[in-house]
Simulated assay, not measured.
Amino acid sequence: MIVHFYTRPGCHLCEEARLMLKLVQEDVSFEINEVNIEEDDALHEKYMLMIPVVEFENEIIQYGQIDYVTILDALLT
């Protein structure tokens, strides 16, 4: 399983979300594909007000405040 994690440098919420994803990884095996939206104009325009964004199987699971239960539930269903 691959979870796409859209972020940007210097984003405090992104740092918290990264830690939350690593906590979920302790219970569910998946790979984190971290994408810096500042390296892609289209992604920057799409996600600049939403980051961090967690996406799985082409669906946004959660953005902004990321929590353990929401991510875990999405990966287990």
Rank of each mutant, 00 (worst) to 15 (best):
P9S: 14
P9A: 09
G10Y: 08
C11F: 03
C11W: 06
H12D: 15
L13W: 02
C14F: 02
C14M: 05
C14P: 06
C14G: 10
C14Q: 10
E15H: 09
E16A: 14
E16T: 15
E16V: 15
A17Y: 01
A17H: 04
R18W: 10
L19R: 11
L19Y: 11
L19M: 10
M20N: 12
M20Y: 11
M20K: 10
L21K: 07
K22Y: 08
K22R: 13
L23V: 12
L23W: 13
L23S: 15
V24R: 06
V24W: 06
Q25I: 03
Q25C: 06
E26H: 11
D27T: 15
D27G: 06
D27F: 12
V28C: 08
V28Y: 06
S29T: 15
S29F: 11
S29L: 11
F30T: 14
E31G: 08
E31I: 15
E31K: 05
I32G: 00
N33P: 01
N33L: 07
N33Q: 14
N33R: 07
E34H: 02
E34R: 04
E34V: 07
E34K: 06
V35S: 02
V35A: 05
V35R: 01
V35K: 03
N36R: 03
N36I: 05
N36L: 04
N36W: 03
N36Y: 00
I37F: 05
E38R: 11
E38C: 08
E38Y: 09
E39T: 10
D41N: 08
A42Y: 04
A42M: 12
A42K: 05
A42I: 13
L43K: 07
H44Q: 10
H44G: 05
H44R: 15
K46Y: 04
K46P: 01
Y47L: 02
Y47V: 00
M48S: 15
M48T: 13
L49P: 01
L49Q: 09
M50F: 07
M50R: 11
I51P: 03
P52S: 06
V53H: 00
V54N: 02
V54G: 03
V54C: 05
E55W: 02
E57N: 14
E57P: 01
N58P: 01
E59S: 09
I60R: 03
I60A: 00
I60Y: 01
I61R: 05
Q62H: 01
Q62N: 00
G64S: 06
D67A: 04
Y68V: 14
Y68H: 13
Y68G: 11
T70H: 02
T70Y: 04
I71H: 04
L72K: 13
L72E: 11
D73M: 06
D73N: 13
A74M: 00
A74L: 00
L75Y: 03
